[in-house]
């Protein structure tokens, strides 16, 4: 069984939502990324969303853009990131989903990219710039490898599109909480609970919610209705804040921050 499916099954039995921290691979470097993933797991994270840096991320706000930029300047290549995941797999079974631009997948060739992802030990991927109708074959290749392609649903998604997406989705659905890009927000939209409930009625696949989820209060609110809580920018900002500190301190402090979010989500 795919690690993602297994994880959601376990969490369902425990009646607790998944906490899914996002982290950019290679910011400040791949060794620290690896240490942070292990630290997040120790603190109770359920699934890792691993951002493969891209030069022109359209769906990302300034914090994740900047982290991608730093990682690329440091020389983070896709092959290095796969190597890091292989290394991690000697130590952990935590499900890892990569967030990767279709520009990268297309350049590498999608079949090969999925095969290499599986070999490295990734469990799925999410592609922010690939709408479900553009590459049906990619979903098929993934299915053959029992590898999950996590699809997005946005507040702007029409009912017609929602039906198409829920039909294709694998692993879990990623609900984008706001009409906008990733980033830290003070407040989540008023209709968020209603929107999540509506989506959950349309599918049996777990629904995780991200974009703008920034504090333990947000995590708590989302955790009451959704099957998963995703936090990215708020974590990447902490990493940026501690970038100049010794790696042990960075890992400990960011870990504490993630620990608070987890307590919020699992209330």
């Amino acid at each position: 069984m795919n690690r993602i499916d297994k994880k959601f099954q376990e969490l369902k039995a425990k009646k607790t939502p998944a906490f899914i921290p996002f982290i950019t691979a290679g910011d400040p470097d791949l060794q620290i990324t690896k240490d942070l993933i292990l630290e997040f797991e120790k603190r109770g994270a359920d699934i890792i969303e691993l951002g493969i840096p891209f030069s022109d991320p359209i769906a990302d706000g300034p914090i994740i853009q900047a982290s991608y930029y730093r990682a690329l300047v440091k020389g983070a290549k896709v092959s290095h990131i796969f190597d890091m995941v292989s290394e991690l797999r000697k130590k952990t079974e935590i499900p890892i989903v990569s967030m990767v631009s279709y520009s990268t997948i297309f350049k590498k060739g999608f079949s090969g990219f999925i095969e290499n992802s599986v070999i490295a030990g990734l469990d799925g991927l999410t592609i922010p710039d690939l709408p479900v109708e553009e590459n049906l074959e990619l979903f098929e290749v993934a299915r053959k490898h029992n590898f999950k392609v996590v699809c997005f649903v946005a507040p702007t998604t029409t009912d017609q599109r929602m039906a198409l997406i829920t039909q294709r989705a694998q692993g879990f659905l990623y609900y984008i909480s706001v009409v906008g890009i990733t980033g830290i927000r003070d407040k989540l939209p008023d209709d968020i609970i209603q929107n999540i409930n509506k989506l959950k009625q349309m599918t049996n696949i777990p629904v995780a919610v991200g974009f703008g989820v920034s504090t333990s209060e947000h995590a708590k609110l989302i955790g009451t209705v959704a099957d998963g809580v995703i936090v990215g920018s708020a974590i990447m900002r902490e990493i940026e804040n501690y970038a100049k500190e010794p790696p042990e301190k960075l890992v400990r402090c960011v870990g504490e921050f993630v620990g608070q979010l987890i307590s919020g989500a699992k209330g």
Partner: peptide
């Protein structure tokens, strides 16, 4: 060609 954009703006393109 094609449409390679986030889901958020897909309905607007339609």
């Amino acid at each position: 060609g094609g449409k390679f954009v986030p889901e958020t703006i897909m309905p607007a393109l339609d």
